[in-house]
Simulated scan of single mutants.
Amino acid sequence: MSSPATPPGGVPCIDADKAGEKGASVGGVRAGPFGAYLRQQRGGVAKLWVAQDPGKGPADALIRVEHVESGTIAYFVRDAAATATTVNDDGKPSGDTIYPGAILLPRDGHVRITISIGRASGCFAYTL
């Protein structure tokens, strides 16, 4: 796994509190779900899928979760070989490839989830 890609102006970050239930996209990466679902986890293990913008080659995903108040940082790696293709409501493949899995979250506070997949990097700021 190579170190996270950082755009010249830094990693672009969005407020995921406003992302809705399905997810959000920034800096060439997508992640979700956010909204009430993630808040209901109340810390500990939480499901979080990440994805690369379509049309890019496979690459490992590096997820960095920072608890802003304490400065605690945890890293999670998703293997490119472990990606899954989502299906539409009719059961047919959508063509959207995600990296499914779980992360550990603090019980409350603010987190910054930075995701790097290949040359793409994005940050999702979220309040628990």
Rank of each mutant, 00 (worst) to 15 (best):
M1T: 10
A5I: 00
T6Q: 06
P7C: 04
P7I: 11
V11H: 09
C13M: 13
C13F: 14
D15N: 15
E21C: 00
K22G: 10
K22F: 15
G23Q: 12
G23V: 06
A24D: 11
S25T: 15
V26R: 06
G27C: 05
G27A: 01
A31K: 06
G32P: 07
Y37S: 13
Y37A: 14
L38H: 12
L38N: 09
Q41D: 03
Q41R: 10
R42F: 14
R42G: 09
G43P: 06
G43R: 03
L48D: 03
W49L: 03
V50W: 09
Q52F: 12
P54G: 05
G55K: 01
P58N: 13
D60I: 04
A61W: 10
A61E: 10
I63G: 07
I63A: 03
R64C: 00
R64N: 07
V68H: 06
G71K: 08
G71A: 03
G71Q: 04
A74V: 11
D79I: 06
A81G: 03
A82S: 14
T83C: 12
T85W: 04
T85I: 13
G91E: 09
D96F: 02
P100K: 15
P100S: 13
I103F: 07
P106C: 06
R107Q: 13
D108N: 09
G109M: 10
R112E: 05
R112L: 15
R112P: 01
I113S: 06
I115M: 09
C123R: 10
F124A: 04
Y126C: 00
T127V: 00
L128Y: 13
